[in-house]
Amino acid sequence: MEIDPLIFRLSIFILSIFVGYYVVWSVTPSLHTPLMSVTNAISSVIIVGAIIAGLSGNSDTIFNTSSIFGFLAIALAAINIFGGFLVTQRMLAMYKKKKKDK
């Protein structure tokens, strides 16, 4: 009997939870705020679903109820992607080591 593809996705999901568990425990506590903003940015990869939804209209009607929700989701996810990565960048640039001049 063939294995349902769902099982493969479930395997990826469960293994990723474990990867996430070990990776996040190794994050230094002083970077917990950037951790939250970067997880925010990457979870907006949901934009791939939004793009599919936005392009779901057929050639004569670009805008139907379904695709409008898609376009709105694209805008929301884009705010998060740009905002999340840039604010993380801005924060990380501030973390500096002590100057060894004394």
Binding site: R9, I12, I14, I42, S43
Partner: peptide, 17 residues
């Protein structure tokens, strides 16, 4: 959506939080 990137990311962010 059967999308691996989204599943992996969701799991990472979920366990991180």
């Amino acid at each position: 959506l059967e999308n691996t990137a989204l599943i992996i990311t969701g799991a990472l962010v979920g366990s991180s939080g």
